[in-house]
Simulated assay, not measured.
Amino acid sequence: MSWTRVIVLSALTTLLILTFSSVVENAAVRDDSKPADHKGAARQVFMPESDASNFFKRRGRRSVQYYEFQAEQRVLMQKDEQRREYNEEQRNEYENYVEEERDEINERSRETNEQLREYHYDGFYPRSQWFH
């Protein structure tokens, strides 16, 4: 019961602090009596057509270094892909090797166990309860 009282009191305290703080006043919507200047904002965002076409013409010409950089990046990406494929192939080969080795070891141990059973079951000794 005491925990619920502590939680309720702390929640109420936080609510009162937020209600009377200046943060809430700053977050309030301004009440401007004059309308916003939409054409001025449009002038700031948009530029004349001639300036825009000049901008894109300048941006259209790329330097030789840019194309060299792109070619180097393509070569690096190809090398990374080849390295990734090589590593994946090596990992798969190793996993196959380990699986075959494990199977071979299991087969050898199974054969050894069978030979031991045959030795113990040859008729000279009665069958043991552990070898079925």
Rank of each mutant, 00 (worst) to 15 (best):
S22V: 15
V23E: 14
V23A: 13
V23G: 12
V23F: 13
V24G: 02
E25S: 15
N26Q: 14
N26C: 05
A27P: 00
A27Y: 08
A27N: 12
A28G: 08
A28D: 05
A28E: 07
A28F: 03
A28W: 04
A28I: 01
V29A: 14
V29R: 15
V29G: 15
D31K: 06
D31Y: 02
D32G: 04
D32H: 06
S33Y: 05
S33L: 13
K34H: 09
K34M: 09
K34E: 06
A36K: 08
A36V: 14
A36D: 09
D37C: 00
H38A: 02
K39G: 00
G40V: 05
A41Q: 06
A41D: 00
R43C: 02
R43N: 10
Q44T: 04
V45D: 05
F46R: 09
F46C: 04
F46Y: 14
P48W: 07
S50M: 06
S50H: 07
D51G: 09
A52M: 10
N54I: 03
F55S: 08
K57W: 02
K57Q: 05
R58Q: 12
R58F: 07
R58P: 00
R59W: 09
R59G: 04
R59V: 06
G60I: 01
R61L: 10
R61Q: 02
R62P: 01
R62S: 03
S63I: 06
V64F: 15
V64N: 12
Q65V: 04
Y66M: 09
Y66H: 14
Y67Q: 12
E68W: 12
Q70C: 10
A71R: 13
A71Y: 14
E72W: 04
E72G: 02
R74P: 00
R74N: 03
R74Y: 10
V75I: 10
V75P: 02
V75F: 08
V75Y: 03
L76Y: 04
M77C: 04
M77H: 11
Q78H: 04
Q78S: 06
Q78C: 00
D80I: 05
D80W: 07
R83G: 00
E85F: 09
E85Q: 14
Y86Q: 13
N87H: 05
N87E: 08
E88P: 00
E88V: 04
E89S: 13
E89Y: 14
Q90G: 02
Q90N: 05
N92W: 02
N92G: 00
E93P: 01
E93I: 10
E93T: 09
E93R: 15
Y94A: 12
Y94R: 15
Y94G: 03
E95Y: 08
E95N: 13
N96E: 13
Y97E: 10
Y97Q: 12
V98F: 09
V98M: 13
V98I: 13
E99Y: 01
E100C: 02
E101D: 11
E101H: 12
E104F: 12
E104N: 13
E104C: 13
E104K: 13
E104P: 05
I105S: 09
I105K: 11
E107M: 13
E107R: 15
E107H: 07
R108S: 00
R108K: 06
R108E: 00
